[in-house]
Design a protein around this nucleic acid. Sequence first.
DNA 1: ACTGTACTACGAGGAATTTCGTACTACCAA
DNA 2: TTGGTAGTACGAAATTCCTCGTAGTACAGT
Lengths: 107, 107
Amino acid sequence: MRTLEHPSRGEMRLDTVLAALADPVRRTVACKLNDAFGDHACATFELPVSKSTATYHFRTLREAGVIRQEYEGTKIMNTLRKDDLDARFPGLLDAVFAAQKIEGAGA
Amino acid sequence: MRTLEHPSRGEMRLDTVLAALADPVRRTVACKLNDAFGDHACATFELPVSKSTATYHFRTLREAGVIRQEYEGTKIMNTLRKDDLDARFPGLLDAVFAAQKIEGAGA
DNA sequence: ACTGTACTACGAGGAATTTCGTACTACCAA
DNA sequence: TTGGTAGTACGAAATTCCTCGTAGTACAGT
């Protein structure tokens, strides 16, 4: 059974979380996880980058503490660590997601 | 009279704002502007970098729309564009500042 | 056992970021 | 006008980030 390293709540660093969310590809992933219920395999995201680049972005998000990744067979299921992030940095995630929607909609 | 370029509210990009705030030196500047009243010249910040590096960070913040810079004699007065940012990306700035205080205080 | 699927690890290239020193400009004050 | 102060512009170096292809691992299904 393969497992992946995740930072604990206390280990999450604001630097790292903001840098993770500053990249458009990674923010797209986080936003999709926030909008949709349940878990989602990496392959279901249709990102505009190659598979190995996608791996890199998923790892960056995981190491920042933004997402949780768990093996399920050959797939990796991704979930947003909303509870943990809300506990650590209250309101941050919601503000970023709201901002993303604003920018996506208007000018 | 020298003037400096600033993005309008609508021109502010989430990518750029988050990237600007992801850097610890720049976030320190923004936080200090938020805590203290009034304007503040660049030289008053005591940043752990050289003068030319400081210039670079101030410019990055200005071009992202986080701060406003206006000449006043030979000095440049810096102000946080809180109104503009709150209008464009509501709650984002407050969440980041709150997070900064949490990280500074606790673990 | 074989095939396919999902993803990773590694190495490498190119782009962007951060840093600095030096030289410079603009302004104020004496 | 001479000097000091505040900050910029430029070029260069170091580092980090993003991207990819190739090769490989782990698991599921037949």
